[in-house]
Design a binder for these strands. Structure first.
Lengths: 194, 194
DNA sequence: GTCTATAGGGCGATAGAC
DNA sequence: GTCTATCGCCCTATAGAC
């Protein structure tokens, strides 16, 4: 047994989410979070670059997605590789549905958290675009495939979050991809869709 | 002639861009910007919500894009309406090529400015998605069309910024849209998805 | 226009693990 | 001894309150 309770980082994340949800992000001070976790303000900043970052777990997702794209079958078209990588997150999120809802509500209530969320999503896109280029996809196709995939994911994630019918995230991703393909299809002629 | 020099806002924008470019964003204080514009710190914050916002002109672009989508021919498919709206920005930017380059370089050097840039782009997407819904496009098609359009714009804008051959922004948008359509086209066969 | 809380960075001290 | 996690205190600039 060490001098400190284990998992300082996890405790900070937990305390932060609870306080942000209960009082709002702006109304919560770092000192408060730290004290709820039995730590000091200074230690908080050792683990997280700023007050927002505590909700965004680091670059693990981006790394995982890049690896998944790297591992995709050689012949797989870029967008399909990206979508498959994103679908592979489904299991991870499936068991965190309520946590994700809670977290999303906090983010939705604060613009500066939305900014952070967007740059995290952009980093997913950047990571996957890099992986695509590694497998020979040229620009701008690589960036477009990655960004499009993330747009699909974003829509799918939202719908998954408030899906009463409990379909999986992967299913929502499939559906959104189909929608995307309808939307980007070259209009044959005066193809008006309501 | 009034009591004050005219265009306080413009002078603040100008001073900020120059100082950010010369010394870096973090190394520049609001007091410094204000003093270069012959104003006080307090006045800066009456014009701009925060230190970042001075680079992002306000919601004019989003409003213009929404209006352009509203004005599109009734029969025009969603993505085409979005792309047409974005192309309509071409003239505006064409005369600001060097200013845009300078500004982009400042933003590229600072993550918090990148966050702000992303939320501004997202607001363009939101505005256009709203306009699409007004013309009867349903979700998630409206959001997907708007987000996809913005992804195309983003890629096109970057390429336009460092295009030695001086093609117009509109031309780059066309090209990127073609690329997008290639990327999202349903692969003809051996469509294996993991 | 003035006042103030807090984010967040710098630097050094401490104390346990190895 | 080194390495690493934690804490303490100082500081400034942002940004909101009054």
């Amino acid at each position: 047994m060490g001098r400190w309770e284990p998992d300082a980082r996890g405790r900070l994340e937990q305390a932060a989410l609870e306080l942000y949800a209960a009082q709002g992000f702006d109304q919560t001070t770092v000192a408060e979070i730290a004290s709820h976790a039995g730590l000091t303000e200074r230690t908080f900043f050792r683990h997280f670059a700023d007050k927002r970052e505590v909700l965004f777990g680091g670059g693990a997702l981006a790394d995982g997605l890049a690896a998944a794209v790297d591992a995709a079958p050689e012949s797989q078209p870029p967008l399909d590789a990206v979508i498959a990588a994103l679908e592979s997150l489904s299991d991870f999120f499936e068991e965190r549905h309520t946590h994700a809802q809670r977290r999303q509500k906090v983010i939705a209530a604060n613009p500066s958290l939305q900014e952070r969320e967007l740059i995290k999503l952009a980093s997913l896109s950047t990571a996957m675009a890099g992986a695509l280029r590694r497998r020979g996809v040229t620009e701008p196709a690589a960036s477009l495939a990655a960004e499009t995939g993330v747009a699909v994911f974003k829509v799918a994630f939202e719908r998954w979050l408030d899906d009463a019918r409990k379909r999986t995230l992967a299913q929502h991703i499939r559906e959104s991809l189909d929608e995307l393909r309808t939307v980007t299809a070259v209009p044959r002629r005066s193809t008006k869709r309501a």
